[in-house]
Design a protein around this nucleic acid. Sequence first.
DNA 1: TTAAAGGTATACCGATCTGTTTCCTTTGTC
DNA 2: GACAAAGGAAACAGATCGGTATACCTTTAA
Lengths: 188, 188
Amino acid sequence: MPAISKREQIISEALRLFYQHGFNATGVDKIITEAGVSKKTLYNHFRSKDELVLATLRKRDELFRNNLMRETERLASTPRERLLAVFDVVSAWFQEKGFSGCMFINAAAEFPDTADPCRILSAEHKRLVCDYIRDLAEQAGANNPNELAKQLNLLIEGAIVCTYVGADDSSADRAKEMAKIFLHNALG
Amino acid sequence: MPAISKREQIISEALRLFYQHGFNATGVDKIITEAGVSKKTLYNHFRSKDELVLATLRKRDELFRNNLMRETERLASTPRERLLAVFDVVSAWFQEKGFSGCMFINAAAEFPDTADPCRILSAEHKRLVCDYIRDLAEQAGANNPNELAKQLNLLIEGAIVCTYVGADDSSADRAKEMAKIFLHNALG
DNA sequence: TTAAAGGTATACCGATCTGTTTCCTTTGTC
DNA sequence: GACAAAGGAAACAGATCGGTATACCTTTAA
């Protein structure tokens, strides 16, 4: 067993290619070439491309939320400060080289069927991010942490779209300033 | 010349199919079958599928913004009320049968290349919607109508994503409530 | 009457797609 | 050293993709 399994190699390249070029536009041939594995190996680890897409989205969810939580907790120490620090983490994400929007918003666009496992997983990802914000809101003592979390989450989604589709670089800062108002309303 | 030209027939079906199933997932064969025209006719009116996609997005922008402005002005009479009515129009859009998110967000997901004409057109669409809101903000007497418009626009984008990807039906109402705060701050 | 224009229907092209199969080599383990 | 599992390379299958070409039909206008 090598240090990095073939399965991880495949998912790692699929993550990059699906994110940069889209799901339908990225063929399995491209993935195996970039990952340096044979087609047989890919289909030995995944029953179909759809299953690879799902595994890739699950990995993305794990990486994204782990990074969000780690960075948020690194940048600020109190729950209230962390609710604002989330926007700094998001802002840094926007400025990463190769930023290509939210992979789950992109997935929802490419898999319009509501019953598609990708759509279900995307909704789940959004819920889990919102759950983390709600935890912070609870710790900060918000009287309605769920509503505050949904408000801040909506601001994040708006910032993503305004940045990626609208090409407005000021969106992350704007969302943070808007968030301050709701933090003040909910926490005094 | 028929009442409805072949070109319009094609664009009309392309609008429906691209929106419901995505751009890459919709082949030209499907479009001509549904539109009831031959492939030669399609390629007589459009040089390529890419050009058809562009023409379809242009039509969508026209229809969407015309409807937004018409409905907003029908629902409310003063500029300030109209800034809020925009959220009612958006809410009604979310509840339409066949709602499948924002076609321009979806297009940005399927055409990740920043230089792609579809991306440029999508950014332009977002700018034009924001421009309309800014006009209303100006008429309402906001001291910084541009900033207010960008704030409200960000709330709309957030509501779209939370509704479509996050499957949260309360997002439109939430965005409207959030908008009231910024209206109050900007207009007293 | 006739010729041009624009339409339909259909066959076809080369490329690309997901997925399978075959044959051979490597690798780890008992 | 023997053997089983995994992987690599490449051909292949069947379908679909965007786009072109051919042949025939219908309308229209000079």
